[in-house]
Design a protein around this nucleic acid. Structure first.
Length: 309
DNA sequence: TGCCAGGCGGGGT
DNA sequence: ACCCCGCATGGC
């Protein structure tokens, strides 16, 4: 149990209309988003985003009892407010798979992740379903038990690389299986080298991290949207939608999405509720290409399912 | 029960 | 460059 000392530093009213419900809610646990307010730990700060209709106010709190060096850039960067994403959405509106999603959620973009945790997210997605992977992540968070109190809200926070190295046995308890060894090697890298100096090649040279995982991490943490985290799931979907061989899928995706392959890949997982491949292909054939599952967790609604995590 | 699921690496050809 | 297999685990 860790309680940081929380100090309010600044508040910013945001003008951009971003389909905030999805910006704050996609891939969020219940302790991060409750349908109205988002709580996100960003480095040594906590961002609290309060929505009121389509108005949003973001408060930045310091975990270090010190507001020096804290400015609006943290918020701008976290939500990528400097970029409008129009080029992506122009493409998406014309795409057979993403047009409905783009129409309904125009302006959505991923929040910026911490590179360390983004890499763990990637590892937990390896050879596992959406639900299995995110259960692992929730289990890791709960077992290591880092918490921050913001007002009367208790935030659960992912373990640090040092936490992992100190208690590696909890990874097995979290049902990560053979991924535990990989996560430990990742933790070791992040202890040895400052996160800001770690790049794609550092990640991919770790045993257990391949192109998919490293690409996903760089998409989530660095917004390197030109990278293509194409797994078996997306490869088959691409082949199905654009009527090409599996083998040609990466080439076609690059041609179609160019600098936005990573963004398109993430949007696709949300649009199809990350259902397993067979179901995903059926959904595409039926034209159900926006989030629609309500009775179990999906990328779009996982914040509603307290009992699953 | 056995097999699959958002990968990966090692060992074959 | 390919192809193939094993790998922890949970869910069906």
């Amino acid at each position: 149990m860790v309680h940081g000392l929380i100090v309010p530093c600044l508040t910013l009213k945001i003008r951009e209309k971003l389909t905030w419900r999805l910006v704050l809610g996609a891939y969020s646990f219940p302790w991060e988003y409750d349908g109205k307010t988002g709580h996100f730990v960003v480095g040594d700060t906590v961002l609290v985003a309060e929505t009121n209709k389509d108005q949003v106010e973001v408060h930045v709190y310091s975990l270090k009892n010190d507001c020096t060096d804290i400015d609006e850039k943290i918020i701008v960067s976290f939500f990528d407010l400097r970029n409008s994403y129009t080029e992506f959405y122009e493409k998406a509106l014309k795409d057979p798979l993403l047009s409905e999603f783009a129409k309904k959620y125009y302006g959505w973009r991923p929040r910026q992740s911490d590179l360390w945790w983004a890499t763990v997210i990637g590892v937990c997605q390896q050879n596992a379903s959406f639900l299995q992977g995110w259960k692992m992540l929730a289990s890791i968070i709960k077992l290591y038990g880092r918490r921050i109190l913001v007002g009367n809200k208790e935030l659960l926070v992912p373990p640090t690389p040092n936490d992992i190295l100190k208690h590696p046995e909890l990874l097995v308890q979290a049902k990560t299986g053979y991924r535990a060894e990989t996560i430990m090697r990742v933790a070791k890298l992040f202890v040895e080298k400052p996160s800001s100096e770690i790049d794609f090649y550092d990640l991919i040279s770790i045993k257990g991290i391949g192109e998919y995982t490293a690409s996903l991490a760089m998409v989530l943490a660095r917004r390197e949207y030109w990278r293509a985290p194409i797994d078996r799931w997306l490869k088959r979907i691409i082949a199905h939608v654009y009527r090409v061989n599996d083998r040609e899928a990466p080439k076609i995706y690059r041609r179609l999405w160019g600098n936005y392959q990573g963004l398109a890949a993430l949007a696709t997982t949300i649009a199809l509720d990350a259902v397993p491949l067979r179901q995903a292909l059926k959904r595409i054939d039926k034209g159900k290409t926006i989030p629609s599952i309500m009775d179990k967790p999906t990328p779009a609604n996982m914040w509603m399912f307290t009992e699953y995590w």
